[in-house]
Design a protein around this nucleic acid. Structure first.
Length: 477
RNA sequence: GCACGAGUGGCAGAGCAGCUAUGCAAUGGACUGCAGAUCCAUGUACCCGGGUGCAAAUCCCGGCUCGUGCUCCA
């Protein structure tokens, strides 16, 4: 079954016919590293991580590019405040970005181009746009002239030139002073005193906000490529600006076959933002839940839907993810993992999951299937005679919950944490067994008071006692 | 105002024409001295008003409500 994807530009879901058979070039707008990464970055990175994982599973050779905007007003501000160079600020936050993304099982992209390493390509592109009459040099920089390609306006958002003209109101005055029209946008900004800058034919300065992505996607993926992604808040003006730049520079359209946009994160029903005080960095979230629990929370809705972020959803994600990892770890350590394809039931589940993923990467459908497999596994493990069937279920989870959704820790760290738990267990085992046997004596003589107080005592040691048909068992809570 | 999207059971959240979503919570049961864990079973839905279909959460039209975008933002 072919993969279908939703394209924002045509507003339809359609089959992913790639430019080169069996290959996918995908560019996703990355972060501006001026502050610690927030959960919106996590959502975006995880959404496209899963899209890329699925495409690879479907046999595509994927070239996945995502950038760092390592020069920008906010980075300059942060650097000035700290009294350090702008690259130091950028590098520090890029390093932090990789740390948190690695923790959430986000696989690395094939390349992470940076603006500061793409300056010559950007200058070339701006030069071409001027030569072709799409851009002009103003007092304080070079601008793209919207009126040279008005038909390209509103490609992603459906807005018209008039609407934005009308909506601009009093803002016109304070936009770049060298603009002929307030809807024009900067390609090159001339440096003010003390700002980082690069030489160019128009004077020293730095790239405008939008041109970097056009230049980086062009140099890594060529004059036409399959997928361009990013957060839905980038549709206007950033991605529409890219359409203007790339298509006018290259002289053909479309440059991008599919525009894909992930939904935002809402906190208590509103978009997360610093000014509302409902802002979470990824590390804030790590203080509440484990990295993979956060990952689970992020893929619990299809990538285009907004994710509601609040304590209820976090607890929910936490519980489900723990159930999954607990059942998987137990199954793996007791029975190992084996091929599942002989199982009719597991094949049917895999089929439903795949149909969901093929239909615009519906992770929610995938999670439903994972949940029911976990439920079955739990039942098998707790039954009196679990059999070899367990290892096939473990194999299935390893493939879909693990490699496709990225929800499972790698088997090495599962083994390590089981070992750690085992040694913690064995340290106190003797003491616990002694207390338990005292408790059994009390239970034998129906002295429930003593039995319960021993259980309370164990509970303060962090030991949870569970009475079963074959006597009591205990675990660390 | 304009654009885009969404409104589903106590909660989270799929489905997008016919066939149990799923999970949590709830209720009943099994197992238990009790508790816990686990399992089995059960109930409660599709914003409102029209329309098209043999059949509509699902398509069409009209409302209402909410979110996002129109300014830096993943």
């Amino acid at each position: 079954m072919p993969v279908r994807a939703y394209d924002t530009r045509s507003r339809e879901k359609r089959e992913l016919g790639t430019l080169v058979e069996g290959e996918v070039g995908i560019y996703v707008c990355g972060i501006t590293p001026y502050s610690p990464s927030h959960i919106g970055h996590a959502r975006q990175a995880i959404a496209f991580d899963i899209i890329v994982r699925w495409l690879r599973k479907r046999g595509y050779r994927v070239n996945y590019i995502t950038n760092f905007t390592d020069i920008d007003d906010k980075i300059i501000d942060a650097a000035n405040k700290e009294g350090v160079g702008f690259l130091e600020v950028a590098d520090r936050h890029i390093e932090e970005y990789f740390e948190v993304m690695d923790a959430m099982n986000v696989q690395r992209a094939d390349a992470y181009p940076r603006v500061t390493e793409t300056i010559p390509e950007i200058i070339d592109m701006v030069t071409t746009l001027i030569d072709r009459g799409h851009a002009y040099v103003g007092d304080d920089g070079v601008y793209f002239e919207i009126d040279t390609a008005p038909e390209k306006f509103g490609q992603l958002t459906g807005q018209t030139l008039e609407m934005v003209r009308a909506g601009a109101g009093g803002r016109v005055a304070d936009t770049g002073s060298g603009k002929r029209d307030h809807r024009d946008f900067a390609l090159w900004k001339l440096a003010k005193r003390g700002e980082p800058s690069w030489d160019s034919p128009w004077g020293s300065g730095r790239p405008g906000w939008h041109i970097e992505c056009s230049a980086m996607s062009l140099s890594h993926l060529g004059e036409a490529f399959d997928i361009h992604g990013g957060g839905s808040d980038l549709m206007f003006p950033h991605h529409e600006a890219e359409i203007f730049q790339s298509e006018c520079c290259l002289g053909h359209e479309p440059v991008v076959q599919f525009w894909m946009h992930n939904g935002m994160i809402n906190v208590d029903g509103e978009k997360m933002s610093k000014s509302l005080g409902n802002f979470w960095t990824i590390r804030d979230a790590f203080g509440k839940v484990d990295p993979l629990e956060l990952r689970y929370a992020m893929i619990n809705a299809p990538y285009r839907q907004p994710v509601e972020f609040n304590s209820i959803m976090l607890e929910d994600a936490c519980m489900h993810q723990r159930r999954l990892v607990a059942a998987f770890s137990e199954g793996l350590s007791r029975f190992g993992s084996s091929d599942w394809s002989a199982s009719k039931e597991l094949s049917a589940t895999a089929e439903r999951l795949s149909t969901g993923m093929d239909d615009d990467f519906n992770t929610r459908v995938a999670i439903v299937e994972v949940q029911s497999v976990v439920r079955n596994l739990r039942g098998l493990l707790d039954s009196n005679e679990p059999d070899e069937g367990v290892s096939a279920v473990v194999g299935w989870l390893s493939e879909f919950a693990g490699r496709v959704l990225g929800l499972l820790p790698d088997e090495g760290s599962i083994a390590a944490s089981l070992k750690k738990e085992e040694s913690a267990r064995s340290e106190i085992a003797e003491c616990v067994e002694a207390l338990l046997s005292k408790r059994e004596d009390a239970r034998e003589s129906k002295d429930w008071g003593s039995a319960d107080s021993i259980r309370d005592e164990l509970s303060t040691m962090g030991v949870v006692v569970e009475d079963g048909p074959e006597g009591p068992t205990w675990r660390l809570g």
